[in-house]
Design a protein around this nucleic acid. Structure first.
Lengths: 246, 246
DNA sequence: AAACGACCCAAACGCTTGTTTAAAACAGAT
DNA sequence: ATCTGTTTTAAACAAGCGTTTGGGTCGTTT
């Protein structure tokens, strides 16, 4: 059979078995593919340019990964495994809830911004987040949920006034949203914030302290929650949002 | 000449001149193209399916818009114009800074979530945000900056302790990040939050109150800012973020 | 030495894409 | 009715894509 795997249907079996840091043709393809998928997306990225960069024949991707989608699968999996290994989700050993929050936020920002200088890894993840493929659902369960529940638990310890579950979850999403935006909206930030200030204040350290500060203030002072229920809708902006006059 | 414009290089001239709500072939193409670009991106969307939906010949897009990119340009422009008309940036007439903040946040969320049920308009904007085309830069200047500076101004009025400019900008990005994530991360939220709670608590009204509450607590209480400078880095998470062992 | 299996390659295949072409259909004015 | 300019059309074009093919080249085994 013209394939490196006995089972022609499952190309992912041999992947986990092999070492990932080799100099195989397979490893070279895997290493080359990531940046292309991240920069151009699944469709625009061509197996010809990927194989060109890896110095292998175009037929090799069919040989080792079945097809282009199989290669994509492995790239996604590889990113997740590396991130989890480099920046594991903080355990509940932390005595201070505030420090735990800071630790989680720092982990999140590190995962988002870590990688080589081009940051193709998280760019690919953001792409998946917006336009999920079939691989994405299981990835959320494996990778995102642990960090999400850790956030919810942390806020449960932090918020002192009575609060319902969905409000804790919204706090968690506020954290995730702020962190994620610094990657997704980097193009916008690059335009809105001039160079000297951006270079100085938009690193992991500054951002994690900022986000932590915001969320601690919101969680610890009951003031934010009071506002939530006290504020009424501004009459000048009462446009219904689901009716779109065509 | 085989083109509806005298000036063959500028296909956008006739666009603004004509009314947008017609039943032309041109209008039908424009109306049909948006959802396809949003769902599939610029590359995956084919002019054949767009023209099929619009019941026009494939050559019409070349005739009216020059090429596929010209059509894309007009779709983007049309979204921005509609959004600005439906949800204008709140003026500075608001006496209460807190209410102004709520108003801005509500406007932002409305722009993001408004549209037809599929929400293709903001989906297309989010796509541009992640992978900007040439059109995007001017769009940021025209559409995003006004709302951004309004946010910065509002926080300048809200924060009582001494604070530097970049911190005000970070507050603004915290708002934008939270709001944008509810659209970008909708796929993730759909998995992490079960149906009954999601239907109930994730509408514009709930979310705008939540975000406003969080940011007011962070801005008004000095507690968040204190934490920003008091918190030290958690030693268990000191992995440098720009070195990636390969 | 011969046979074998793993790996790699150049070339071709089939298909879809955006775009162009040249003719036909249409509308309004003369 | 005829001319004129605009709009629409079917068909073809050239390019690029992912994938397949059939054979070739090694190293190892029998």
């Amino acid at each position: 059979m013209n394939s490196p795997n006995q089972n022609s249907a499952d190309f992912s079996a041999a992947v986990t078995a092999e070492s990932s840091g080799g100099d195989d043709a397979r490893s070279r393809i895997l290493a080359s593919a990531g940046p292309f998928f991240a920069r151009s997306g699944f469709d625009r990225a061509t197996v010809r340019e990927i194989c060109g960069e890896a110095n292998v024949n175009v037929a090799s991707v069919g040989y080792y990964f079945g097809d282009k989608m199989g290669l994509y699968r492995q790239v996604i999996r590889q990113i997740h495994e590396r991130k989890e290994l480099l920046f594991p989700t903080p355990g509940e050993s932390e005595t201070n809830a505030a420090e735990l929050l800071h630790s989680v936020i720092r982990t999140l920002l590190s995962r988002i911004f870590a990688g080589d200088s081009s940051g193709w890894e998280s760019q690919l993840m953001m792409r998946e987040m917006m336009q999920p493929t079939a691989i994405f659902a299981e990835l959320v369960q494996e990778s995102f949920r642990p960090l999400f529940v850790r956030l919810v638990e942390t806020f449960r310890r932090l918020v002192k006034v009575e609060v319902s579950e969905h409000e804790l979850e919204q706090f968690a999403f506020s954290v995730i949203g702020q962190c994620v935006y610094y990657r997704i909206g980097s193009g916008v930030i690059q335009i809105l914030v001039p160079e000297p200030s951006r270079q100085q204040h938009y690193d992991i350290d500054s951002l994690s302290r900022h986000v932590t500060g915001v969320m601690l203030a919101a969680a610890e002072s009951g003031r934010g929650l009071e506002y939530k229920h006290a504020l009424r809708v501004n009459p000048s902006n009462l446009t219904p949002f689901n009716t779109f006059p065509e």
